Deep mutational scan, measured.
Amino acid sequence: MAAGGDHGSPDSYRSPLASRYASPEMCFVFSDRYKFRTWRQLWLWLAEAEQTLGLPITDEQIQEMKSNLENIDFKMAAEEEKRLRHDVMAHVHTFGHCCPKAAGIIHLGATSCYVGDNTDLIILRNALDLLLPKLARVISRLADFAKERASLPTLGFTHFQPAQLTTVGKRCCLWIQDLCMDLQNLKRVRDDLRFRGVKGTTGTQASFLQLFEGDDHKVEQLDKMVTEKAGFKRAFIITGQTYTRKVDIEVLSVLASLGASVHKICTDIRLLANLKEMEEPFEKQQIGSSAMPYKRNPMRSERCCSLARHLMTLVMDPLQTASVQWFERTLDDSANRRICLAEAFLTADTILNTLQNISEGLVVYPKVIERRIRQELPFMATENIIMAMVKAGGSRQDCHEKIRVLSQQAASVVKQEGGDNDLIERIQVDAYFSPIHSQLDHLLDPSSFTGRASQQVQRFLEEEVYPLLKPYESVMKVKAELCL
């Protein structure tokens, strides 16, 4: 049975990233139509530049190519590739079939990587351009969430054990800070992308030097003109047959890092959902379990974690691919890159769409948070109580021993009897502590235990987050809708 299948058929496997999760716009960027249309555009740009620099290419040939950029006979191309065992030459023939007058000058002087690699770089750039505003929107939604809850005390956790208090907004800023680093890295790697350009079979530009009869300047002009037509500021000066596969490492490393950030955020949300302090959106008709109707599973956060793990592992592909590119190139890269580049971007696209949807509907339960604080705060307040007693004339050592005994009794009630923490009640009825009984409410005010959390939130948002989001103001209103 021949390899390949009808990918629109229910009898043929289709990647869930495309069929179930990723956005239509990201799927289109990695589609065959987008790819092969870009090949034709690159052939047109090459012909236009070659004509401008004096090669015998007519206006009629150029116009014929322009008129057929979208006229792609995919069936013919597939048949040609089956016959020739070469995808680029299959599309040269297919393009030439609908451009008979231009057929002889299509791909003039070029090698397969002229269309293959340059198209990949265009796709990487455009895919990054799709991700950047999506990530900015996630940051914006979380920034709104953090600002609104900047002063809401909550129990902090280290080692997932109760620690000092923080605020809900401050905790959210930990998430935002990681995503801001990801946004900066995505922008950097996007701006650092260079075009492969017009380089020939081993990167020496020998074929173009021959076409222009040894004119170095025209060869350099050709490279520059096509690079500018493709919208790049610069091209690699040095290439082998391909652009260095280190570029793929750079791009997928940034995406993998984004995956790590999203995994951490969504894990926190899942843990908070278990504590009943916070939940992701839950639709009115949504079913959490087929057997347990009360369940409210954090399905979206779980999906993000599941896909983020996949995204983090994909960076190993370009690392290994770059390491086995012998001399000017081997074909070890080809099949692998067809999979890992598309999957990385479709996965990143999915987790950003999902995280935006989550961040637009996060639900906080202040009463649950308050109750958990009441359970733990008495123990945390013991040092403040000791200091207040010393100020009232008591002995630190005597007070410490009193607190120690009462704390152990209260802990026994919590752990052995399943009761509430009654340390404060014990202190309130103990005559030894009568000098500070009137101060206990103040000493137990949760806001006095959150330090500068709310001020940190305000400063972080104003100095770091809002300036970073400013270039994306025009796209901030787009909502994230999930079908599944």
Rank of each mutant, 00 (worst) to 15 (best):
G4R: 14
D6E: 14
D11N: 10
P24A: 11
F30A: 04
F30D: 03
D32Y: 09
Y34N: 06
K35T: 08
F36A: 14
R37C: 10
W39A: 11
W39H: 14
Q41I: 08
W43H: 13
L46K: 01
E50C: 08
E50K: 05
T52P: 08
G54L: 08
L55M: 12
I57E: 01
D59K: 10
S67H: 14
K75Q: 12
E80S: 13
K82Y: 08
K82D: 14
D87S: 05
D87Q: 04
M89R: 00
H93R: 12
F95G: 00
P100Q: 11
K101H: 09
I106L: 07
L108N: 11
S112W: 00
D117S: 02
I123H: 11
L131E: 14
L132G: 13
A136C: 13
R137M: 14
R137N: 12
A143C: 06
A143L: 05
E148Q: 13
S151P: 08
P153Y: 06
T154F: 06
L155R: 01
V168M: 07
K170P: 01
K170D: 00
R171E: 01
I176C: 11
Q177F: 13
M181K: 08
L183K: 05
Q184K: 12
L186G: 12
L186V: 11
V189H: 06
D192R: 10
F195I: 14
G197E: 01
T201D: 03
G203Y: 00
T204A: 08
S207Q: 01
S207P: 09
F212N: 05
H217C: 09
K218T: 08
K218Y: 15
V219L: 14
K224N: 09
K229P: 03
K233F: 11
K233I: 11
I238Q: 06
T239L: 06
T239R: 01
T242D: 06
R245W: 01
V247K: 10
V247T: 13
L252V: 13
L252D: 08
L258F: 14
A260L: 04
S261M: 02
S261P: 04
V262M: 08
D268R: 00
D268L: 01
I269A: 03
L271W: 01
L271A: 05
N274M: 11
K276H: 06
E277L: 02
P281A: 15
E283Y: 05
E283K: 15
A291Y: 04
M292G: 01
R296S: 07
E302S: 03
H310P: 03
H310N: 07
M312K: 04
M312F: 04
L319H: 03
L319M: 10
S323M: 09
T330H: 02
L331V: 08
D333C: 06
R337P: 01
R338L: 01
I339F: 12
I339H: 12
C340Q: 01
L341D: 14
L341Y: 13
A342R: 09
F345R: 02
L346K: 04
T347K: 04
A348I: 12
I351Q: 03
I351M: 14
I351R: 01
N353D: 10
T354C: 13
E360R: 03
E360H: 04
Y365R: 12
P366I: 04
K367D: 04
I369G: 08
I369W: 02
I369Y: 03
R372C: 03
F379Q: 03
F379M: 12
M380A: 01
A381F: 06
E383T: 03
A388L: 07
V390D: 03
K391E: 10
G394L: 07
H400C: 05
H400E: 02
H400P: 02
E401H: 13
K402H: 06
K402Q: 11
R404E: 02
R404S: 11
R404Y: 10
V405D: 15
V405M: 13
Q408R: 11
Q409N: 11
A411V: 09
S412I: 13
V413W: 11
K415H: 04
Q416H: 13
E417K: 10
Q428R: 13
D430W: 07
A431Y: 07
I436Y: 05
I436P: 04
L440R: 04
D441T: 09
H442G: 12
D445G: 07
S454Y: 12
Q458Y: 15
E463R: 12
L469G: 04
P471N: 15
V478F: 10
K479A: 15
